[in-house]
Simulated scan of single mutants.
Amino acid sequence: MAINKPLKWLITGGCGFIGTSLIKNLVEEGRHHIRVLDNLTVGTRDDLSCVCDFTETNSTDDKAKLIVGDIKDYATCQNAAKGMDVIVHLAANTGVGPSVEDPEADMKNNVIGTFNMLEAARHNNVKRFIFASSGAPAGECEPPIHEELPPHPVSPYGASKLAGEGYCSAYYKTFGVETIALRFGNVYGPGSGHKNSVVAKFIKKAMAGEILEIYGDGTQTRDFIYIDDLIHAIKAAQTTPGIGGEIFQIATNKETTVKEMVDILIPPLNKAGIADIQIEHGEKQVGDVMRNFSDTSKARDILNWTTRYDLSRGLQETIQWFI
């Protein structure tokens, strides 16, 4: 999905998995001005340098600019947003586990950080604000998850993402910032070396000869979305007019158990020479939901967006990247 005119993009968390994937796509498209705000706790300068040339000084050339800073700092956010057309807010504390271990840190990153970025958009007249959310605000419910379900988050992570969605809605209704919240499914794909989500973690453990631990009996379900499909959704959220204040489920509309995912994952690992993969079952993770997949019909109808990768093809591409 090409964007017709060059834009000035601020991408928070731009050194991470989704951020670098988006930047790679924008660089290949050409013409865009890219600014990255990242505290480098997960992604690194090396990760960013793999997808673009960048500078950390004020420069008039075509290089992307990296601002090393934290979204919890109000002034940093204001400075980063100056002159931008669109903010893609990816920086966040991610995952249920870390939010259970340290709910205060999760809240500060995901609630205060999102508030600061929305304030930066408001005061700098940034037209569009794309917020990376999750299915976690919906909580334990009968799937498929859709945008009109009343939210009942199970984990602190789900609560913090719900707060972000609430602030996005308020900043559209009150201040006119065109916010769009995208509820990402379980994202996987090339570039996910730093991620600790189930696909990336299992591939890394298999390559290291370590045991793959499935929480519980493996019947918990997820909606696994390939990174290229997700990037197309972000770009569709930028180009589609008249969607301020909206929420979209961005996933595949397919329910897959963790055990089924592992069954699809192991044969291409074996084919790549990674054999004798051991699996064991551990305790169910606190705050985890048992069933999770999305109804993506709203994104299909309004964003004109659908996925192109099935799980088998996506996992093969991901394994090849890790190898």
Rank of each mutant, 00 (worst) to 15 (best):
M1A: 07
A2M: 02
W9C: 13
G14Y: 06
C15Y: 06
G16K: 11
L26F: 01
G30E: 01
V36L: 07
V36K: 11
V36P: 13
T41R: 15
T44I: 10
L48C: 03
C52D: 02
D53G: 06
K63R: 05
A64M: 00
A64G: 08
L66V: 14
D73W: 01
Y74M: 14
C77F: 12
A80I: 05
K82N: 07
G83Y: 02
M84N: 01
V86D: 09
V86H: 03
L90C: 05
L90Y: 08
A91R: 03
A91N: 08
P98S: 09
P98N: 03
V100N: 12
E104G: 07
D106P: 00
M107H: 08
K108A: 14
K108R: 14
N110A: 04
E119N: 13
A120D: 05
A121I: 04
R122M: 06
R128T: 12
F131V: 00
A132D: 06
A138M: 06
P143C: 03
P156L: 10
A159E: 12
A159F: 15
K161F: 02
K161C: 01
G164M: 06
Y167P: 00
V177C: 12
V177S: 14
I180D: 00
L182N: 10
F184H: 13
H194V: 09
K201M: 14
K201Y: 11
K204A: 11
K205R: 14
A206K: 08
G209C: 08
E213P: 09
E213A: 00
I214A: 09
I214L: 10
Y215D: 13
D217H: 00
T219I: 03
D223P: 01
Y226G: 04
A233L: 00
F248N: 06
N253Q: 14
K254T: 15
E255Y: 05
T257E: 11
T257W: 10
E260V: 00
N270K: 11
K271R: 13
A272Q: 07
I274F: 04
I277M: 04
K284Q: 09
K284T: 14
M290N: 06
R300H: 14
R300A: 11
T306L: 03
R308N: 14
S312V: 09
G314I: 04
E317H: 06
Q320A: 11
W321D: 01
